[in-house]
Nucleic acid binder design. Structure first.
Length: 555
DNA sequence: ATAGGGTTAG
């Protein structure tokens, strides 16, 4: 044999074998009947799979009479990785009828595939198979089951599998932790984290990633900082995943200084980290700075994607000046992103918020693909500019084209009604939303309804609407209700609302200011004074009168 | 002799 066969096979174990080489080797192996040997066939199959040539891999599989577990698993895995789930599962069925039985790796691979395919049914069937084949306690199977159930939102099933394992290994702990992380289960995550340490398992960077994900807003910033401290203690804070996630954690919490300082430790931040930082800055209201960082990213050779462009456009829409928005429009155009739905919706939103509804409308008209998000943008733009009937027309058009309206669609419609003072249309949309489209009203919808009904002075109807809501009632709704009372000088209703608020300890400074203004208008200085003392209000504005600031005047 | 289980963000 003058072909250095061993060296060819050895090359197979290096990942970068060109496909032509693999074919050559395949031909050789067929010629020498080595494909009969499951060992060599498996190697070739794996390398076809690496080169995205599953057809050849499957051909070879068909020609290999003696099929080892390695051979089956390699091909199943190749299909699963290529997201050809039907092929993977049909092979699995063939396997069940063959002389080789699936092992823990077969199940692990298919369990993962079923979660990637959002196929809870198959996942449950496979789980059954795992239990039946006695692999229930296998770490590899069960860690995949835990991850798969969590990914599909079935956290109870995930934790059942997890708690069935007496002494989980690090990967299992981490699977469970990221399961909690993905669903924002902070308390459970923290509890598990301390439990694993009590059991003597040292957390690693994966554990920290799972925990960091649970920190989703500024109310839990303290915990987030403690987790950050723990990363330092473990020495995993310089892991890129960890650093990047810390940046987005601090951005979500609007704790932009910390986001900066963590970001600064990255040598080469990737696109998503830049995006997290930029959207954090924009979330904090500093659009100018957000744009500066976007420019800096570009200067450093970073290239934005559709999602970042949409984020930056949202920042532009908060500016009083349309110029930067136009620049980003140009950028989107040059990079070929202007016709992506996400970008064009953001563009139309930006133009209309910057006061150039016509430009926004042009973007809308030239959009090739429209989805419900784009329709929502144009409906809300028209509504904000007082063009309610045009907004209604577009809504009908979206329906005719078969788009399914969502919560945001009705927010936009109700907003349009508010701006145009169309109380009856608002009532009608509010009714249709539930009866026709089965969409439950959210806080925003109720706020619009309160404003709308309040406009007409239907205070009784407004109050009944709010009464019908389940506790806890959002503060925005109370605020809208109080404004109605104020506008119509209905102090009686304001009293009822105030009782509800104070009785439930829901009062905050903006309610207090609103209430004390109302009480002052009503001449109830005792109450004004009480509120003032409680909350340090020093100014009052009476309708038609000047500011009253001294304590004496109150009395 | 073969491989094969857990991250990620806007």
């Amino acid at each position: 044999m003058f072909i250095p066969f061993n060296s060819l096979v050895a090359q197979l174990s290096k990942l970068k074998l060109p496909i032509s080489r693999t074919k050559e080797l395949h031909a050789f192996i067929i010629k020498t009947h080595l494909s009969q040997d499951p060992f060599y066939a498996t190697r070739i199959i794996r390398f076809y799979a690496l080169n995205n040539d599953i057809i050849s891999a499957h051909n070879l599989f068909d020609k290999t009479p003696h099929r080892s577990i390695y051979l089956w698993n390699s091909l199943i895995r190749a299909y699963a990785r290529a997201h050809k789930f039907r092929n993977a599962f049909s092979l699995f069925n063939d396997m069940l009828h063959s002389e080789v039985m699936p092992d823990n790796f077969t199940y692990a691979c298919l369990v993962k595939a079923s979660s990637e395919n959002f196929d809870l049914h198959s996942l449950r069937v496979l789980h059954g198979g795992v239990v039946l084949s006695g692999l229930r306690l296998d770490f590899i199977c069960s860690s995949q089951l835990v991850s798969a159930y969590s990914r599909l939102g079935c956290i109870t099933d995930a934790s059942k599998v997890f708690s069935g394992i007496a002494e989980p290994d690090l990967v299992l702990w981490n699977s469970m932790l990221s399961g909690y992380g993905g669903l924002g289960e902070l308390e459970k995550g923290i509890k598990l984290f301390s439990k694993m340490q009590i059991m003597g398992v040292r957390p690693d960077e994966y554990s920290m990633v799972g925990l960091i994900m649970t920190i989703d807003d500024s109310s839990v910033l303290k915990t987030g900082e403690a987790i950050h401290g723990f990363c330092l203690k473990l020495g995993v804070e310089s892991n890129d995943h960890v650093t990047s996630l810390l940046v987005s954690m601090y951005s979500r919490c609007k704790c932009i200084d910390s986001a900066f300082s963590v970001f600064g430790s990255l040598v080469e931040p990737d696109l998503v980290t830049w995006s997290a930082l930029i959207s954090g800055i924009s979330l904090c209201g500093d659009s100018v700075k957000a744009l500066d960082f976007f420019r800096e990213m570009n200067m450093k050779g970073g290239k934005a994607d559709a999602s970042l462009i949409a984020t930056v456009l949202t920042a532009c829409s908060q500016l009083a000046n349309v110029q930067p928005g136009i620049e980003i429009h140009g950028y989107a155009f040059r990079h070929g992103y202007h016709s992506e739905v996400m970008v064009s919706s953001a563009l139309l939103d930006m133009y209309s918020k910057c006061g150039f509804l016509e430009f926004g409308y042009q973007v809308y008209e030239t959009m090739v693909f429209k989805n419900i998000v784009s329709y929502n943008s144009i409906i809300s733009s028209l509504g904000l500019h007082g063009l309610a009937s045009h907004a209604f027309q577009i809504f009908e058009k979206a329906l005719e084209e078969g788009h399914k309206p969502d919560e945001a669609t009705f927010s936009a419609l109700l907003c349009a009604c508010c701006h145009a003072g169309l109380v009856n249309d608002g009532r009608e949309y509010f009714r249709k939303m539930k009866d026709h489209f089965g969409i439950l009203a959210n806080t925003e919808h109720y706020i619009y309804m309160v404003k709308l009904l309040g406009m007409e002075g239907q205070l009784r109807e407004v109050y009944e609407l709010v009464q019908s809501l389940q506790e806890p009632i959002d503060s925005g709704i109370w605020g809208a209700l109080l404004s109605c009372c104020d506008a119509h000088q209905n102090y009686e209703l304001a009293d009822i609302v105030a009782c509800r608020l104070f009785g439930n300890k829901l009062e905050n400074s903006s309610y207090r200011i609103m209430l004390s203004n109302m009480y002052a208008s009503d001449g109830r200085w005792d109450l004004v004074n009480k509120l003032r003392v409680d909350s340090g209000i020093t100014k009052l504005k009476l309708p038609g009168k000047s500011w009253i600031t001294s304590k004496k005047t109150f009395l």
